[in-house]
């Protein structure tokens, strides 16, 4: 699964196939960097600080660290 990083700095990524669109990560993100529609989720690159809190909060392991920033 690939996802272009707009800033080239994004180190985390959401695996859309695993995401249940539950909003847990949105509720904890300190930077308001996650956009969640009915069944569509994305990270707002320029807000994300790669703090990893969303990774720890996702109940279904749908968010991963991605050291290259692009390849998941």
């Amino acid at each position: 699964m690939y996802r272009e990083s707009r800033t080239g700095k994004l180190l985390i990524d959401i695996l859309p196939g695993k995401c249940d669109f539950c909003g847990c990560c949105v509720g904890i993100c300190p930077e308001d960097a996650i956009e969640l529609k009915e069944a569509e989720i994305s990270i707002i690159d320029h807000r994300c600080t790669n703090c990893a809190k969303c990774i720890w909060s996702c109940p279904v392991e749908a968010i991963k660290f991605n050291k290259e920033g692009i390849l998941v």
């Binding site: 539950c22 909003g23 847990c24 949105v26 509720g27 904890i28 300190p30 308001d32 969640l36 909060s57």
Partner: peptide, 20 residues
């Protein structure tokens, strides 16, 4: 739980990840 409305109005409403 995913509320963002408060934040857009300037309130600090996100939940600390330890409390989620």
């Amino acid at each position: 739980v995913e509320s963002r409305i408060g934040r857009w109005a300037g309130l600090e409403t996100f939940t600390d990840f330890r409390n989620m």
